[in-house]
Design a protein around this nucleic acid. Structure first.
Lengths: 222, 222
DNA sequence: GCAAAAGTGTTACGCGTACACCCATGG
DNA sequence: CCATGGGTGTACGCGTAACACTTTTGC
């Protein structure tokens, strides 16, 4: 079957930059392409937007297909539509980014045939299309949002220690933070609260556990 | 001539929210639609993205057609693509916003037949499609950017007085500012500098003129 | 008892905020 | 000389930044 229009129409895709923190660094989920163009190249997960599907739903569908997760943080990033960014036809991609807590990232379920891998954003392989630019844009956005929102909590499970949260901030901001100042600051925001529970990790004092006051919600701060 | 595809393709448009400050308020450029759907309704300027035209070029083209200006601040805002937002076919719109200095806004040149008018963002008529939501998104963005960038300078001509700049901030932020504190703050940013020239406006002391250190560039501050 | 991470308080400095009067000009 | 907006300085308080030692646990 063919679909015809009086004027040429571009194709519209969504690509999604899925972030997690693993191995003490920011990582992104990539797939290895099976077909040309850019066969064997690494690329962002993504695909065509169905004609009767909202953009955000398309991005959620991709996210779920690649990671098996839902109900994680998802935000529209930017729309990349330069002519020539895909050699086959005019393709405009609405890029999204997602933040997946690291305890949920084992099951890369439902991914189709291509290889799928978490890769550190600071040492990426050659990427298909303009996906390097998309990832760089997403990286800037998520780091910037760490400064003025509670997005960092989205990298962690429902309960976490203050040290874990501090590590997330340090990775996103690429700078070391003072432990006492960090604790004073994060607690003064009233965006997380102690659960009362503790966690024993190793041969040292157990840590108090905290949880977001408003889970799933990214609040603006300052 | 017909253009055929193996899968259905959405149409892609750009709509552009063109802001200026006039009559001591934030205003936006609207056009009155000549045809259905939403005949006679007010709407944002915009139109289809040519198949061999970059998105930003499409937005610049619209801006230039509607206002005759070029080389003003233009930024991608958000992509609105809900199914059903256009009753004719699936239309995904990449929205941009622009800031036009008020001394350039007389010549609404080259606009095609429909009525064109500047309207205050706080008293808008009923709008076509989801254009009310687009304008609200743009309004939030420009106000937020006033707090952490030098975008306010983009509303003014190359040379302006500190009182004029303060008025722009007050309109964007919807709050009164203290004159002495504003001057101390804006000068400490080193984003504007005195030209040495003065301007006589009325029957009072002439004002020093200032100009952006890096004209055309919107710097992040704080 | 030792290694390893958790937890805790005080001081100093800079920035943001509050606030009122004189100056230059035109009419 | 009067009306109008232009231009200027200080004092206070809060928030950010610097900084080191004790506690609890496992081995």
């Amino acid at each position: 079957m063919q679909y015809s229009y009086a004027y040429p129409h571009p194709a519209v895709t969504t690509d999604i930059v899925i972030f997690t923190i693993q191995h003490s660094r920011l990582e992104v989920l990539l797939i290895q392409r099976l077909k040309d163009p850019f066969k064997d190249c690494w690329a962002l997960p993504g695909g065509f937007v169905d004609i009767d599907e909202n953009l955000e739903n398309a991005a959620m569908r991709e996210l779920c297909e690649e990671t098996g997760v839902r109900d994680v943080y998802l935000e529209q990033l930017f729309t990349f539509g330069d002519t020539g960014r895909d050699p086959r036809e005019r393709v405009i991609t609405v890029a999204y980014f997602a933040v997946v807590p690291n305890h949920l990232l084992q099951p890369i379920a439902g991914s189709d045939a291509a290889a799928v891998a978490w890769q550190p954003v600071d040492q990426l392989p050659a990427l298909a299309f303009d996906h390097d630019r998309i990832i760089e844009t997403a990286r800037s956005r998520v780091s910037a949002k760490a400064r003025y929102s509670t997005i960092a909590c989205q990298f962690l499970p429902k309960e976490f220690t203050l040290s874990e949260l501090q590590t997330v901030y340090e990775i996103l901001l690429k700078e070391q933070l003072d432990k006492r100042n960090f604790r004073k600051w994060i607690l003064s925001l009233n965006c997380i609260e102690a659960t009362g529970a503790m966690r024993r990790n190793g041969q040292h004092r157990p840590a108090r556990l905290y949880t977001p006051v408003d889970p799933g919600h990214v609040a603006f701060i300052r």
